[in-house]
Design a protein around this nucleic acid. Structure first.
Length: 219
DNA sequence: AAGTCGCC
DNA sequence: ATGG
């Protein structure tokens, strides 16, 4: 198959995905770029209180992505399962409070995508190093799927995988760069998604990492 | 179960 | 290298 034909078919698939599989998902290119130094400073505050760690999946595997949380609730995984917890299992203390710059950014992005009054109570902070990946999954540990998901990309670029509502739906590849924000909710709230293994690189602000902030209403 | 592997 |  020629590259042109491949690109044409990929475009067709993207259109089908937008219109049929995941309506309501939005990519806001560069939306967070202007705030990146403030976000970076706030991030240091959060990770100083609750360090990145590699959680264990119920299957007993170590996740390649390191994560921590801020906000009233944090997403945790161990051999017993996935859940939201108000305390950090590493320290027994509450998660760091959600920085104002995080909350405002999430609310502004949600509103831009048509979701007014987004009140996230959980912010997952994912750190990808080269080789780290996230296989296809749904965000479904939240109590109420009425609220959207807001996902902020910082640092090294990554290829995001956007699937449909069924695991068998072949994902579309979406390149995400520093400052890009994705919002999905409504009919696309439970779409499968993942991230391909991160490539090596250097970013002026984030160095050799990709940081992803994911805002959710957990309760 | 948000993982990894071997095989094709 | 990629994907089932």
């Amino acid at each position: 198959m020629t590259p042109d034909l491949f690109e044409f078919e990929e475009r067709q698939r993207c259109r089908k995905w937008r219109e049929e599989l995941c309506p309501g998902a939005v990519v806001l290119h560069g939306f967070a770029a202007q705030d990146d130094t403030a976000i970076f400073a706030a991030l240091h505050g959060v990770t100083g209180e609750a360090a990145f760690r590699h959680m264990i999946t119920p299957g007993g595997f170590r996740m390649s992505v390191a994560l921590t949380n801020c906000g009233a609730y944090g997403w945790v995984s161990d051999r017993t399962g996935y859940r939201y917890d108000a305390t950090d299992p590493e320290s027994g203390k509450p998660w760091p409070r959600m920085p104002g710059v995080f909350l405002k950014l999430a609310q502004k992005a949600a509103a831009s995508a048509g979701f007014e009054d987004f009140e996230p109570d959980a912010c997952l902070v994912n750190r990808y190093e080269p080789g780290a990946r996230l296989s296809l999954h749904q965000d479904k540990n939240e109590r109420d799927f009425g609220a959207p998901i807001v996902s902020v990309s910082l640092g090294l670029p990554a290829i995001f995988l956007w699937g449909g509502l069924r695991r068998e739906d072949r994902p579309v590849r979406i390149p995400l760069m520093h400052g890009d924000v994705m919002v999905w909710g409504g009919p696309s709230r439970l779409c499968y998604h993942g991230v391909l293994a991160l490539k090596e690189g250097n970013h002026p602000l984030m160095g050799g990492y990709r940081i992803n902030l994911t805002f959710r209403k957990a309760t």
